[in-house]
Simulated assay, not measured.
Amino acid sequence: MTVTVRDLRPDVRADTEGWTLARRLALPFFLFTPESIAYDAAHRHPDAHFRPLVAEENGEIIGTAQVGLVHDSPEPGQGYLNVYTHPEHMRRGAGSLLARAAEEHLTALGATRLFAWVLDEPGNRAFAERHGYRASRNAHFLRLDLAHGTLPSLQDPPLGVELRTGADFADDPRPLFLLDAEASADEPSDVDYEFTDYEAWLVENWRHPLFSPELTTVAVVDGRPAAFSAARTDGGTRYGTAMTGTARAFRGRGLAKLAKNDSLHRARAAGFTEAFTGNDAGNEPMIAINKWFGYEICATEVRYVRELT
């Protein structure tokens, strides 16, 4: 059968379900639902020129690609394409077709540097290198068995620290936006980001269908959010940490660990059985914290870069 590439139709349930199935099988450490895929397609910032693509064979979606510009970076001309193929449909040409369509889209938008995450497996790395990409940094996916694992005991907050949930900020989430922006700016990355658009943050993070304000924990010091662990769930049994971070003025006090432990305990009490998170391979302090919780590395990705001339 012939493999074809086309745009995802976010308003067609068969498309979003097909995308979710193919992506979950290719990348089972990340949370996706049909609703989240449709939401992302409809609500990404217009400057991102976000374009989800699918590879289809005989009416079945066998490959997916997320494509867009890094609009929230101070450096223009940076694009991304994250291509994954259904593991039972490899070597049909789906990945190459998706990559070609993505590169044409980004080139037409003026992109001069392209970034792509690739699972750290020989075939995947060879695929990226054949297409002109060079390896950059690594990142890990980590998994925690909430159903059978043992979490560290809950600790009482230190004097002057209060633990709240994200839902407590429903009337005014701006303090959490400011905390997220500051913590994210210091995340290890080969792309610089600037979170300055509060309305975009509300749409892409706070109102995202996977985001769980009830399971998000915020450590508050003297009325100011000082550290947080943002939670996402798939509506079933899987929980994920979207971001854990601390404001610069409060680092070194264990507040991020305190917040994440509280969130994990409440997730387990709510019936979630698996917890996932991700870490840049160079972020040794956060990797150490996650191992303290019992997380184990379950896969590694490599970020590849291609310079366009």
Rank of each mutant, 00 (worst) to 15 (best):
R113A: 13
E88V: 11
F32I: 12
H71M: 11
Y84R: 11
A126G: 01
R113I: 15
A101T: 10
W117I: 07
A111H: 00
E57T: 14
E57H: 14
T85R: 12
A101I: 06
Q66D: 13
V67S: 04
L53R: 09
E121K: 11
V70R: 05
E75G: 13
Y84F: 15
A41N: 05
A55D: 07
S36L: 00
A65Y: 05
E57P: 11
A42I: 09
D72R: 13
W117K: 08
A116M: 10
L81G: 05
L114K: 05
E35L: 01
H49P: 01
A65M: 11
I62E: 02
F115W: 08
F30Q: 09
W117Y: 10
A99S: 15
A94N: 07
L53I: 13
T33V: 11
P34I: 03
E104Q: 13
N124A: 02
L31V: 06
A94I: 13
L106N: 07
A55K: 03
A48P: 03
A102N: 01
A42V: 00
P87D: 10
A108M: 05
L97V: 14
P46A: 06
L53K: 05
L119V: 14
L31E: 03
R91M: 08
P122S: 04
D72S: 14
R100W: 12
T33A: 01
F50R: 08
M90L: 15
A102H: 06
G93S: 11
A99W: 15
N82G: 07
N58S: 15
R92M: 13
E57K: 14
P34T: 08
G63P: 12
F30M: 10
D72M: 12
A38M: 01
H45N: 07
N124D: 02
A102W: 00
E129S: 07
A102M: 01
D72N: 14
P34K: 01
H49I: 06
G68E: 00
H49Q: 09
W117V: 07
A102D: 05
A101M: 09
S96D: 07
D40S: 09
L98P: 11
P74M: 02
G123W: 04
E60W: 12
A48V: 10
L81E: 11
W117P: 10
G110P: 04
F127H: 00
R44N: 08
A42K: 07
A111I: 09
A55R: 05
V118E: 03
P46C: 02
F30N: 12
G77M: 09
R113Q: 09
E75C: 13
L53G: 07
F115P: 04
W117M: 10
G59C: 11
Y84D: 02
M90K: 15
A101P: 04
E88Y: 15
T85Y: 09
Y80S: 10
A55W: 03
A111K: 03
H105L: 04
Q78F: 12
V54H: 03
G110R: 05
Y84C: 10
I62P: 03
P87R: 11
E35K: 06
G59W: 13
F115T: 06
H105V: 04
N124L: 02
R44D: 07
A128T: 04
E60Q: 14
F115H: 00
G79N: 01
A94T: 09
A41D: 05
F30V: 15
I37E: 03
L69T: 09
Q78L: 15
Q78T: 15
D120M: 02
L69E: 10
P46D: 01
A108S: 06
